[in-house]
Design a protein around this nucleic acid. Structure first.
Length: 193
DNA sequence: GACAAGATTTGCT
DNA sequence: GCAAATCTTGTCG
C-alpha cells in the first residue's frame, strides 16, 4: 500500500465519515463530570475530514489536531474565538484526520444541571456546538478522551420510530459551504438554526 | 517573534 | 441584522 498524497484520499474514507455522522444521530452521551450524571441524545452532527478545505486536518497533522489523527471513538476538543470549546468524535482510522462535530444534543437526564451550567433554560442550553460542550462540562483537558471510558461515554442507539435524517450545507463556516455534510434529525426542537 | 483568522455565542440597534 | 468579546494556533518573515 503506497502512501497517499494530501488531497488524494480514497473516497471510501470520506464516505465513512459521512456515514459515521449519520449513525451518531440518536446516540447517547453519558456524562459523569462534576459528580452529576447527565445523559443527552445527539440530534445534529457535521462531518469533517482531510478532504475538506474547512477542516482543521486539511493541511495535515499539527499539535492542535493530533487527536483527530489518532484512533476513532476518542474526543477531539478545540478552543476557538477566544472563548468557546467544541466537541468532535474522531471517526477515521489512525493516520487519517477525520471526525464528526457534535452540533446539538437533546437532554434526556439531568436537563436541570445542563441549564444550570449554561445559565439559560430550554433549547438554548444545548442547541449549538459550543453550548452543549459547556453544558456537559467538557474542556480542553478532555481532548483525546476515550469515549468508552468514564466520565464521558458514547452509547450506541438508533433513531426513534418516525424520525428521519435530514441534511443541509454546513453552518458557521466560510469555506466549502456548498458541501452537504451537516446532518440532523428532522423536526427536532434542539437542532441549531 | 509578530500577525491574521477562526467548525461561536450573545447582546444591542 | 450586525458587531463585539477574546485567545490559541498556524503561518510567514
Amino acid at each position: 500500500m503506497t502512501q497517499k498524497q494530501a488531497g488524494n484520499f480514497p473516497t471510501f474514507l470520506e464516505q465513512a465519515v459521512e456515514d459515521a455522522a449519520q449513525l451518531l444521530l440518536g446516540c447517547m452521551l453519558k456524562c459523569d463530570i462534576d459528580t452529576a450524571t447527565v445523559r443527552v441524545r445527539i440530534v445534529e452532527t457535521e462531518a469533517y475530514d482531510q478532504a475538506d478545505e474547512a477542516s482543521h486536518t486539511f493541511r495535515g497533522q499539527t499539535l492542535r489536531n493530533a487527536t483527530m489523527f489518532g484512533p476513532p471513538g476518542h474526543l477531539y476538543v478545540y478552543f476557538t474565538y477566544g472563548m468557546h470549546y467544541c466537541s468532535n468524535i474522531v471517526a477515521g482510522p489512525v493516520g487519517y484526520g477525520a471526525g464528526v462535530l457534535i452540533r446539538a444534543v437533546e437532554p434526556v437526564d439531568g436537563a436541570d444541571i445542563l441549564e444550570q451550567r449554561r445559565g439559560v433554560a430550554g433549547v438554548n442550553a444545548t442547541n449549538g456546538p459550543a453550548k452543549l460542550t459547556q453544558a456537559l462540562g467538557i474542556n480542553r483537558a478532555m481532548d483525546g478522551h476515550d469515549l468508552r471510558n468514564q466520565p464521558l461515554q458514547l452509547i450506541t442507539s438508533s433513531l426513534n420510530p418516525g424520525e428521519s435524517i435530514a441534511t443541509s450545507p454546513r453552518i458557521g463556516i466560510a469555506k466549502a459551504r456548498t458541501v452537504h455534510r451537516r446532518y440532523y434529525i428532522a423536526g427536532n426542537d434542539y437542532v441549531s438554526r
